[in-house]
Computed example of a mutant assay.
Amino acid sequence: MKIKVINPNTTWEMTRTIEQAAISVKREDTEIVAVSPELGPASIESFYDEYLAIPGVLEEIKKGETEGVDAYIIACYGDPGLQAAREVTSAPVIGIAEASMYMASMLAARFSVVTVLPRIKTMLEEVVANYGMGHRVLNIRTTPMCVLDFERDPIAGMEMLRQEGRRAVEEDDAEAILLGCAGMADFANDLEEELGVPVIDGVVAAVKMAEAIVDLGKKTSKHKTYKFPEKKEYIGMLTSFGSQ
């Protein structure tokens, strides 16, 4: 099967890190195609960034429909454009936040998220609420590091995650830790060993879920909510989106 992993930001160094995380857990017969869109922000750390990343994500889904893709993964912890993406394909589309929370709920009763800058906390609180996980997520812990800092200085990144992960276990009483950024995949195994609780990276969780869904032959429902968009005119920068 072919799984297309879309990093919604345009920083290819981060895309390559995400690709390696996906490849590390895939089956031998699974092909991973990791991409960044041609348009969008260098990183996603605000509602503004998130909304402007969505057109690029949808373009990559549309391309995938001609590339033989069996499933898509949106590799940003806000799951930007996830619902819209499900409208433009019948293939499964999985967000890494959604995947990590669903997987964690089968491994632990309560868990905390460790993520990047403080301003993203409200964004992720809304994601948690949208997935009905408010009763399971104990806390969303932030660090002073931005998304790309984890690429530039992985040693400092590991230390920040270690500190907040330890606080999550000791102060929140978290029974698992979710890494709230797609660029944190390299830290999961070491953190799990140190903290003594499951540490879940959303990219690897999404890959295994995608493989299972494709194996079962399941597709995105087109009965009502995720029907293909009605054809209509879009103008300006969005002209191409009118040709569904």
Rank of each mutant, 00 (worst) to 15 (best):
A22L: 00
A22G: 01
I23C: 03
I23Q: 11
I23S: 03
I23V: 13
I23K: 11
I23N: 08
I23G: 03
S24Y: 00
S24A: 14
S24H: 05
V25H: 04
V25A: 04
V25S: 09
V25M: 05
K26C: 11
K26A: 15
K26R: 13
K26F: 02
K26T: 03
R27H: 10
R27T: 05
R27D: 13
R27C: 05
R27K: 14
E28H: 12
E28Y: 05
D29K: 15
D29W: 08
D29C: 06
D29N: 15
D29A: 11
D29F: 08
D29S: 12
T30M: 10
T30L: 07
E31L: 06
E31W: 02
E31T: 08
E31R: 05
E31I: 02
E31N: 05
I32D: 06
I32W: 02
I32A: 04
I32E: 07
I32N: 05
V33S: 12
V33M: 12
V33I: 14
V33R: 06
V33P: 04
V33A: 10
V33F: 09
A34H: 09
A34E: 02
V35C: 13
V35F: 07
V35D: 11
V35P: 10
V35G: 13
S36E: 08
S36T: 13
S36L: 08
S36K: 02
S36W: 03
P37N: 04
P37V: 02
P37K: 02
P37D: 07
P37F: 00
P37R: 01
E38N: 14
E38C: 07
E38R: 09
L39C: 07
G40C: 06
G40N: 14
G40K: 01
P41G: 07
P41F: 04
P41C: 07
A42M: 06
A42R: 04
A42V: 08
A42K: 06
A42N: 12
A42C: 09
S43V: 01
S43G: 05
S43F: 03
I44V: 09
I44F: 03
I44R: 00
I44M: 01
E45P: 06
S46G: 14
S46I: 07
S46V: 13
S46E: 11
F47T: 11
F47W: 14
F47I: 13
F47R: 10
F47H: 09
Y48F: 15
Y48R: 10
D49Q: 10
E50Q: 13
E50P: 01
E50A: 11
E50N: 10
E50D: 13
Y51M: 13
Y51E: 10
Y51P: 05
Y51V: 14
L52N: 14
